[in-house]
Design a protein around this nucleic acid. Structure first.
Lengths: 220, 220, 220, 220
DNA sequence: TATGAATGAGGATTCATTCAT
DNA sequence: GATGAATGAATCCTCATTCAT
């Protein structure tokens, strides 16, 4: 599955008019900020009301649920990132080039949408049912794109890609590096972000180029 | 600072006797399981009571707070891991050997204490004040041990270790790989764990051996 | 300090509208009744909910705290009494006249707002911090007005008023008479209340007119 | 009723031996201190346990109830005071002499047993049933002794004493002065206590000597 | 006598959500 | 579109009390 399909799973309450849409954007930004800082569970709708200046009851015009609010944030943010990445992949180039491009894009997006992306990264489990599934699907898409690149570097054929634990692991290691950044990134200390991406690629690229490790290991 | 100091920040209900100690262990295990699955915030003390069979009020004999319960889990689990790692480092060997030992130990511990370690990894922010600080200190200790190894591989002198962003980043990338595993590890699919560790080392070791990337990057 | 300043210490849920204000009055009346009968500590919010017919959660729309509820009662009741007394003092007259006026006003107010005033009198210590201080300030104001009258009768100059133990004691004796009434007053037996006031004045006025007792006493 | 009858209403758990009696004294003193400071309701048995060093369970050897603990304090303290006063009255003398003696005794006792007597004065309502009745009876006895003196000064015959509101009121006014002292007494500022008693007598004695006020008053 | 361990009831408070206006 | 007012369920925690040892 390569096509990205994003359409409201559940319908956010009523059609936004051109007058309400910017208000919604503002709202989602504030909510993302709160949830990034304190987590979804510890963020109350009342917090969002206070921070946005919208009344408690009024908020429910914009989303039908606390969970729906979270979904809206994740869907928009992650969706936009993936569109970006899809375009980046479409530009072509060899595997290393594409990998570097992916990582840099990710990190630039991370910088511009820190709160929102943090929420995407750490609050998937706060969604349930259809909403969970919709975001999980996006995540899988992202995973597969990276896995394909790893497989290409290692010359693992597409049909063995799914079953090859080593590809899986290497891919997830890279996502681990990428996702953990939210816990330590300090704008003053760790900029510029492109440099960070290059360091990550440098750390990993030689290992990738060397090919996958042997299937079996005896232990020390 | 190499000595690990772990002593109750706040004093949970006095010295456990030999009769209550195993009960406490059991309790903490159950609580860790719940918190690993649903998160700290979504785990209620009532859940713990139901799952353990201890009465709601009775639990408060073992800890003074929900937060204290979390602290107890983190302190014990993380403390024990760090003791293990401290011993592992004391065994000596070159940087790569020590790094591989650290990673393997971590992953074995991860396997044996999945729930508890997941709680340590993802719920630090649920602690506050002194309790937060006590665990954060443990984390810093762990970070520094790994950073020292990276610095040694790269020949960065000890006094520049703190200020060198590249050492910092490489170290945190490795922790990212390690910590993200909780989100995807599947016992059936991803064992054995030593193999996982070797793959991680393989992915990263060449990059490390190549030395740090240049300080500045230009580029698109 | 003669100006009375009473403004919410902490902001109970915003500005009451004309629709909610009477409900709040009713609520505070009920709560005062319960607290007068059973004390603040033994009055539960649930009691208030049951007695008012408002739901447990709904009550928190009107105050943010159990303590805030108590504060609201005290601030309103005591504040209104002191406004009354301030006006009474402004009417002028000699010291005895003003004293009699004060006592009568107090007792009439006592009769009309028995529960509320009892709560003011006996539950100051149930407040803390800013709220305590706000009410304590009102109490001090009241004390000083009475002390001034005593001092005037005795010809103690204003600047010695603070330091003169005899003025202090006589004033507090009168407050003692006044405040203890809550423990024994029986509407059937002890009315009319103006008569009670006159008896109190009669008991004390001759002693006051005789001037302060000598500074030092040898004992029996 | 002149005879004082004090015998445990309820039996404090088990007969105290000579070894446990002093421990009980200590315990009651501590408990009285806590209850004087924070009130009966806000004092927990756990507080008493912590403050005394006796274990929570162990306390129940000394009393069977939290209420029983309060009762023990009140019975002992108030009982001893009344014995003192009974003896003081037995010494004879005219009404003024006896009144002054009563007041001085009361205040000296107040000074030596501040906590305990405060608890007697303010926590009668925390007792129920038989225990309440037993202490209320002591209080009535005390009230009557003072009322008799007032009646004697005013020449009110003993058989009209009960029905005469003016005697009742004057008596209760004096108790009000006496009982309110707990709320303001400051050892540094307000000593010596005999002097305080003399001031109280001086404030009131002229009014008493002048005879009761006329039965009816027109108002304002 | 005294303690550690445990219970169950009740208390204050928060919170997502709803609905009439 | 938006608000004020209200609800009911759930949550954390405290506390008097008990009982085996």
């Amino acid at each position: 599955m390569t096509e990205l399909d994003r359409s409201g799973t559940d319908g956010n309450a009523g059609g936004m008019t051109s007058r309400t849409a910017p208000k919604l954007d503002h709202l989602l930004g504030i909510a993302a900020g709160l949830m990034a800082r304190r987590g979804f569970g510890r963020t109350s709708i009342r917090d969002v009301a206070n921070e946005t200046g919208i009344s408690l009851g009024g908020l429910y015009y914009y989303f039908k649920n606390k969970e729906d609010l979270l979904f809206l944030i994740q869907e928009r943010t992650f969706g936009a990132l993936l569109e970006l990445q899809e375009a980046a992949l479409a530009e072509g180039g060899d595997a290393e080039t594409r990998l570097r491009r992916l990582v840099r894009n990710h990190l630039r997006y991370f910088l511009d949408h820190f709160n929102e992306l943090k929420v995407c990264t750490y609050e998937l489990e706060s969604l349930e049912g259809e909403r969970y599934e919709a975001i999980a699907e996006l995540r899988r898409w992202y995973y597969h794109r990276l896995a394909e690149i790893v497989a290409e570097v290692w010359g693992v054929p597409g049909d063995r890609l799914e079953s090859d634990g080593r590809v899986r692991h290497a891919t997830l290691f890279v996502f681990g590096m990428l996702n953990w950044i939210f816990t330590w990134y300090d704008a003053d200390r760790d900029k510029p972000v492109d440099r960070l991406g290059d360091e990550m690629i440098a750390l990993v690229m030689d290992g990738l180029r060397a090919g996958p490790p042997p299937e079996r290991t005896e232990s020390s």
